[in-house]
Design a protein around this nucleic acid. Structure first.
Length: 114
DNA sequence: AAACTGACTAATA
DNA sequence: CTATTAGCCAGTT
């Protein structure tokens, strides 16, 4: 069991292409921490503002933007995604079947349904 | 060293 | 649909 380092998670998030999104669980899987979606959220919460990591491309498993406890960066997240061409439905959700990041070499898919 | 903190997900009722 | 339960771990105070 490898130690889940925030740096490793950030490096994975950096690989998400513009115009795509990944779920927390997907980032965890690709980073080699399958089943540790929550730690991904924790890692992003600790991200420095000037890191250059495209944190806004990470959404929850429903294709929705997760709310922060304090702060208002979730509003910025939607704006940034829309600027990259990601469309939101009337319910505020992203169509994951359309925008979800397709990993070249997945350790294992988060959801086997595709 | 112990307590506290925090962007999740799946299963169940 | 909402609510609850359970698993999850590093960094900071």
């Amino acid at each position: 069991m490898a130690i889940i380092s925030r740096a490793r998670i950030w490096a994975t998030v950096r690989r998400i292409p513009s115009g795509n999104v990944a779920t927390y669980g997907q980032v965890a899987t690709v980073a080699g921490f399958d089943g540790h979606a929550r730690q991904v959220g924790y890692a992003l919460a600790a991200l420095p503002a000037d890191s250059g990591v495209p944190w806004h491309r990470v959404v929850n498993s429903f294709g929705e933007i997760s709310q922060r406890r304090g702060g208002d960066s979730h509003e910025l997240q939607r704006i940034l995604l829309e600027q990259e061409g990601v469309e939101f439905g009337a319910n505020g959700k992203i169509d994951l079947s359309r925008y979800r990041w397709k990993v070249r070499h997945p350790a294992r898919r988060e959801r086997p349904s595709d």
